[in-house]
Computed example of a mutant assay.
Amino acid sequence: MRDVESVASKNLKEFTGLLEQISGSDELKKEYEELEEKKASAEEKKALIYQKKKTIGAEKKLKKSQKEEAEKHLNLQDELISLG
Rank of each mutant, 00 (worst) to 15 (best):
E68R: 11
E14Y: 02
Q66Y: 02
Y32T: 11
N75D: 08
K30C: 07
G84V: 07
E59N: 11
S9R: 12
K60T: 08
L83D: 04
K38Y: 05
E31H: 02
Y50S: 12
S9N: 14
T16Q: 12
A47L: 03
E69A: 15
E43P: 00
R2E: 15
V7P: 04
V4H: 07
E69Q: 13
Q66S: 09
D3Q: 12
S25V: 11
K29F: 05
K60G: 06
L80H: 02
K64R: 09
E34N: 12
V7K: 08
K60P: 00
L12M: 06
Q77F: 04
D78C: 10
F15D: 07
E27C: 04
V4C: 08
K72A: 12
K10C: 06
Y50D: 11
Q51I: 04
A42S: 15
E5V: 08
Q51F: 03
K53D: 13
Q51K: 12
A70S: 08
L28D: 15
V4I: 15
K38V: 05
E20G: 02
H73K: 15
V7E: 10
L12V: 05
L83K: 14
T16H: 02
L12I: 04
K30R: 13
L83I: 10
G84N: 14
E71C: 04
K54Q: 13
L19R: 06
G24V: 09
G84A: 14
Q21L: 11
K61P: 00
K63E: 07
K38S: 12
A70G: 02
E34P: 01
A42V: 14
V7S: 11
E20C: 06
E33S: 05
E69L: 14
K60F: 09
G57P: 00
A8S: 09
E71D: 14
K38D: 09
I22P: 00
E31N: 07
L74K: 13
L48I: 03
D26R: 03
K61D: 07
D78M: 15
Y32R: 15
S25M: 10
S23P: 00
L19H: 00
A42E: 10
L76K: 15
I81G: 04
K63D: 06
L19T: 11
E59D: 10
S65K: 10
M1I: 07
K64V: 03
K46P: 00
S25D: 04
V4W: 04
E37T: 03
A40M: 05
G84C: 11
D3K: 09
S25I: 10
L28S: 15
E14W: 02
